[in-house]
Design a protein around this nucleic acid. Structure first.
Lengths: 127, 127
DNA sequence: TCGTAATATGCGCATGTGCGCATATGGTTT
DNA sequence: AAACCATATGCGCACATGCGCATATTACGA
């Protein structure tokens, strides 16, 4: 009984990570290839402070993995299933949004299917 | 470009609905059978005010459907895909929680698969 | 019609959250 | 060592959110 309370709490916490546009943009940026903080900052056009904070939150939430290389820190998706879930919801809300505007196209271009986990490591970049 | 901003916003809004334990409990209660507000209140042991507010939010968010019958209002899942998504995330976090406690069992019992859209019509009041 | 049950909502409070500014921390280069 | 990059974090502010209390609204039965 009270046991399931903890489950609902954990489940809610997981969804809470995904309940912020900036964090979803980060997921979108990172779902294909690992990226450093500054790369994400540039791609999203947000401040370093804000991105860093969101990245920390997503990492603590178990959504992103962290890899430190020199002074840069690279983040990548911890689980491809999370991107799948985003895609599911995307296609689910596509119809609703489409009723107002032709956004289905934009939706489908988001959260593209993963191909490979490319690492900007020295030599190898494939996997 | 700016077009996708709206998509991320909508996606985040969708996840925000699921980012609250009480709302997830409601989803769990309603994912099998349609239920009235007072039934949900009793099952969750929460106040009527709070449940009603959450139900309104979930309905406006497109997650629940509303059906009025007399003075009662019945709510049910608008889309079985939402329950599927909850189940996905449940099984995803099962491992993480299991590392701390044996909660996998509790997780698996949550959000059971839907069988039929049973309506609490006049006579039947099963369970 | 009046009382009662079922549901929704205005108000206020406590707490959570996103953000920017300034600054700290750690690594790299000269 | 010093200057410089990349990233993280303390602080404060504006705003959102969950909740309960009281009350409004609607439907139904006596």
């Amino acid at each position: 009984m009270n046991n399931s309370d903890e489950v609902f709490e954990a489940l809610a916490a997981c969804f809470r990570v995904l309940s912020e546009p900036t964090r979803l943009k980060i997921m979108h940026a990172v779902c294909e290839k690992e990226m450093s903080v500054s790369q994400i900052v540039e791609e999203l056009g947000a401040t370093q402070t804000n991105i860093s904070r969101h990245l920390g939150l997503m990492h603590r939430g178990g959504v992103l993995l962290r890899r430190k290389q020199g002074s840069q820190v690279y983040y990548r998706l911890a689980d491809a299933a999370m991107a799948d879930i985003c895609r599911s919801v995307c296609s689910r809300i596509a119809g609703q949004l489409d009723a107002r505007q032709p956004l289905r196209g934009a939706l489908m271009k988001l959260m593209p299917r993963k191909r490979a986990a490319a690492r900007p490591a020295p030599s190898r970049a494939a996997r």
